[in-house]
Each structure stands twice: as structure tokens, then as C-alpha cells.
């Protein structure tokens, strides 16, 4: 049985998700930030974390964006293979983003061309990731990403011999180079394996993982815990002004790769690593 879904529903949902994501800090990030404020042993760092929590509260209550950089809209779509969408799916997502950013008073931060740089005026186009999955549902996640943190993200092709230590060094170097720029405390998504285009995709996807979970593979879960501990010993701290809380969470996504390859991508997220999800 094929389920019919009108593209208008996609448009409405994307519109609503854009607005919600920009105004409401995900609960797991807020919770982690509260814990971090409690654990923070440096006064100025703790006061910055408390200010960020207060900011998130004000944004939610006054229905305004948490951060003025409401990002480029990244839309992850999982389409059940038993769904038929009537109307243009891509157009519907585009219209949803346009309406969300316009009607929600979100910032229009997209230029039509990377070199001629004219603002499109409605924050379109979004970046769309599509996946076909079993079932008759459509799952949509809007994850607006600001440029302060996106600009600090990095990718490299290591050799297999560089192994785990090579990956660790690349992650630590990325954190050091990012320093105060990506609005720490940061959240890191790390993609290991796949190939040149897959590693950065996995890194972005890893940013969506809840902060109170670890990688289901205990080997990678251990790496996540150890690297997170090391990053929080750098002293960078909130806003780079010193302190314990440099990174709120770190997730690795790993995948099969070529015998000659060890691709690694680190997507740096800020303390407002937003995302909102709905299932249709």
C-alpha cells in the first residue's frame, strides 16, 4: 500500500521546524549546559554559561531567535519508500524554508553565488539531504547552522597507518585552531571513514545525536569519552576566555572505507547547535 502525502504538508512542516529550531534550544543541550555550569570551577566561565542559559530562556519565552545567525537551513529528509508525495518535494522544502525565515523574522544569510555574493533575500536555497528508508513515514529534521562554527570545520584524508592517533591529533588540532571563534562551548560531530564526500556528511549528521548518548559501538564510545575529556583540558573555555567547559559533547559516526583511505571530517558546532524534527 502506498500512502499519499501532499507536498503542502511538507511545506508547512519545514516552515514550522525552521522557526522552532531557531527559537528553542534542544533540551539535551540546555541540560548539558546546566550540568557544565555546575561542574565549572572557573568563575568567569560559569557566569558565561549562566548567561547563555538565561539567553535560551529569554529566546523561548519571547519567541525570538537564540542567536542572530539563524544559519543556512540544512534539511535532513528520510522518506519512507511506501510514501508517494503529490507535488514537487524540493519545491515544498524550498517554500517551507522561505516562509519560515520570512514569517519567523529569521535572518536571511544566504547569497545566491559564492563569488558574486548577492543575498537571495529569503534564506533559500537550503541544503537538502535525502535518504530512502523502509515504511510509509517522512521524517524531517531542520538543522540551521551558523557560519562562525561552520567556518572552523575541517576535513582531511589520512593514511591508514596514521590510524587512531592520527585522527585524535587532527581532532585536537581542529579544536585548537577553532579556539574562541566558533562560540565555545562547542559541540563536535566527527565522521570517520566512507570517502571524500561521505566523511563530512557523517560529521554533520553526528551533530544531531543527543548529548546524553554515546556511540552504540563501545570501541567508538570510549574514543568519544576520552577525546571529550582531552578537549576539556585545553583550558579554552566558554567564548575562549578560559575555563573547563570547552566542549559540551562529541559524537563519532564511522563507516566502511577503502583499504588505502582514512577520511576524517570534524564539524564544529557552537553552543546553539540547533535542530528540530517532525514525523509525517
Amino acid at each position: 500500500m502506498v500512502r499519499e502525502l501532499d507536498a503542502c504538508q511538507i511545506e508547512e512542516t519545514v516552515r514550522e521546524l525552521c522557526i522552532r529550531a531557531c527559537r528553542e534550544l534542544p533540551c539535551d543541550i540546555e541540560q548539558r549546559m546546566k550540568e557544565a555550569a555546575g561542574e565549572e570551577d572557573w568563575d568567569s566561565a560559569r557566569s558565561i554559561l549562566e548567561l547563555l542559559l538565561e539567553n535560551a530562556r529569554v529566546a523561548r519565552e519571547h519567541a525570538v531567535p537564540i542567536c542572530q545567525d539563524t544559519g543556512m537551513a540544512v534539511v535532513f529528509c528520510e522518506i519512507g519508500q511506501d510514501v508517494h508525495i503529490s507535488g514537487s518535494f524540493e519545491e515544498a522544502v524550498l517554500r517551507g524554508v522561505r516562509r519560515g525565515y520570512t514569517e519567523g523574522y529569521l535572518r536571511k544569510s544566504v547569497v545566491a553565488d559564492p563569488l558574486r555574493r548577492k543575498n537571495t533575500g529569503d534564506n533559500t536555497p537550503p541544503v537538502i539531504h535525502l535518504r530512502l528508508v523502509p515504511g510509509d513515514r517522512v521524517r524531517l529534521t531542520v538543522a540551521p547552522k551558523g557560519a562562525g562554527s561552520e567556518n572552523m570545520s575541517r576535513m582531511t584524508m589520512l593514511t591508514p597507518a596514521q590510524g587512531m592517533e592520527g585522527v585524535r591529533q587532527f581532532v585536537m588540532e581542529t579544536v585548537r585552531l577553532a579556539g574562541a571563534n566558533p562560540c565555545p562551548p562547542m559541540i563536535l560531530g566527527i565522521g570517520i571513514g566512507g570517502n571524500f564526500e561521505r566523511a563530512p556528511e557523517m560529521a554533520k549528521e553526528a551533530l544531531l545525536d543527543p548529548l546524553d548518548t554515546w556511540n552504540p559501538d563501545p570501541f567508538y564510545a570510549e574514543l568519544e569519552k576520552e577525546w571529550l575529556r582531552q578537549i576539556n583540558e585545553t583550558g579554552i573555555g566558554p567564548q575562549g576566555l578560559g575555563g573547563r567547559t570547552t566542549c559540551l559533547g562529541l559524537h563519532i559516526h564511522q563507516e566502511a572505507t577503502h583499504i588505502a583511505c582514512l577520511p576524517v571530517a570534524v564539524n564544529v558546532g557552537c553552543h546553539v547547535t540547533r535542530h528540530a524534527t517532525a514525523v509525517l
Partner: peptide, 27 residues
Amino acid sequence: VAVGGAAALGAQCVKHLEVIAWDDLGP
């Protein structure tokens, strides 16, 4: 430095705003 990302609170300190140049640049 102002605290990055604390933009909902930042707005409360602005009492007046006027675009004085290059409106075509939007934000």
C-alpha cells in the same frame, strides 16, 4: 567581545536602530 550567541539578551540593550548605508546588503 560580546558573548557570542547570547543574541536574545543582546537585543534588550538596543534602544534605537537606523540603517544609514547600503540597505541592499540586508543583514
